[in-house]
Design a protein around this nucleic acid. Structure first.
Lengths: 245, 245
DNA sequence: GTAGTCAGATTGTCCGGACATACACATTGA
DNA sequence: TCAATGTGTATGTCCGGACAATCTGACTAC
């Protein structure tokens, strides 16, 4: 069966993007089965009334996502891998919501504090200068799941406690017009201290999963520094890595 | 000062790649300082005797790596972020070697076993069929650091114990002509069992960092399934994530 | 029968150009 | 003074074409 593809030239959406989205949907939906050839670029271009560079741009974006593989002299085929979801800079809140876990947030602290040396270095602000500090408890099904301590540079956005309880920090940042770009993460484990154990209703000495992250926006400016602890019985980090040769 | 760039048309190395490497080196070296404009694409192209698409391809590859930011109507500038290293599908052995930790490996088991349901599903082989099983202890400075249990599909490569002790598994795979493409990882934590504690010279119940990973080659075929436990006092996962909008 | 060779197919690289779009800045208007 | 408007500049998108590099498979020669 021939895959039905078409583009709308009156739409403001770029043609290559229209095409890549349709291809991605076809792969996701199973219309394009793993291992199947995509048909050569020139024929595809003429069938759609597009130029070859445009078709290549569409295909390239899916290759970058790890959905397609190009082979010179052979063609472009769908990878036959079970997992196709791309890696993302994930938000715990969105992850939980997507998994149907009904996340809830309890804001413990929402204030302004002087920056410690470590936080100042991470955020690129002067030591002792003002930074926002937010401590939250993330719950799923009413049970505590993670303790989240975040610091943000001043003047970036208003941190409203009600909003923080209704959604995730990343969504607030995006809503404020900040386009997140990259993050440096460190994931480790350690035994819970007495205070940590109480917050998460675990026993002292119980293993905890820890994550420390600095997030940067598209200008390379640090917009958030987080120090999180998770209950490993309730949460683990899942992601897909792509090799960039 | 004008950045000195030039391309060698007699080289088999693609022009866009020559350019992107020089730009990356200039950024790494500090010749191109964070926040500085790159000069517009058309002028850059004419200066180098290249076409604009070629220059764009070079710049785009660095944008994808997170080194540059494009702004319509403004120009392309170097991100002013502290961390510029891209995310990679890391190999523990290479990581340790790069950090000057003198890694060593002790092969505990190197054999062929029938695939359990879980392993068969991960590797995409028939249940009960033959798979390689390798258990290793990774040491740094003579101290145990991680316990690595891996399964590989049959017929992929010869697993020589001596080679496994001399280098990492990923390097062996690459040497065998396998181009790694992506991996699905899950990172968690748990308390050490008695057996795990003994292997890693920890106490029973001590927190351990766990990682489970399935690695795929460029055709989407699973080439390795690993179940690793790390001593969190000696190791944590560090990586940088890029957002793909 | 096996190895080497050749042709076809397909992606990889590169060109030169055209118009659209968004941002920054200066100008103009209220 | 401040907002709206225009203008220049840079990237974003798209085109049509050309040749090179590489893989597959069939054919040929030994």
């Amino acid at each position: 069966m021939q895959l039905e593809l078409r583009v709308d030239r009156s739409s403001p959406v770029p043609l290559y993007f229209q095409l890549s989205q349709q291809l991605e949907a076809a792969i996701e939906h199973g219309t394009l089965t793993p291992g199947s050839l995509l048909g050569n670029e020139i024929e595809l271009a003429s069938r759609l009334g597009l130029s070859r560079p445009t078709v290549r741009q569409a295909i390239q974006s899916l290759v970058d996502k790890g959905l397609l593989v190009r082979r010179r002299g052979v063609g472009t085929q769908v990878v036959h891998s079970q997992v196709k979801r791309p890696l993302e800079l994930s938000s715990l809140y969105d992850d939980l919501e997507a998994a149907g876990q009904h996340p809830a947030t309890k804001v413990l602290v929402n204030t302004v504090v002087p920056a410690s040396p470590e936080i100042a270095a991470a955020l690129g602000v002067p030591e002792g200068g003002d930074v926002h500090r937010v401590e939250r408890l993330r719950l799923a099904h009413g049970e505590p799941m993670a303790y989240l301590c975040n610091h943000l540079p001043p003047g970036l956005l208003d941190l409203d406690t009600a909003q923080l309880e209704a959604t995730g920090l990343y969504r607030l940042l995006r809503t404020a017009g900040i386009t997140l770009h990259s993050a440096r993460q460190s994931i480790g484990a350690r035994a819970a201290t007495a205070a940590e154990a109480e917050r998460l209703t675990e026993d002292e000495g119980a293993p905890l999963l820890t994550m420390r992250r600095t997030t940067f926006d598209d200008t390379g400016r640090a917009v958030e520094f987080g120090d999180h602890t998770y209950r490993p019985s309730r949460y683990s980090f899942e992601f897909q890595l792509l090799v960039r040769p």
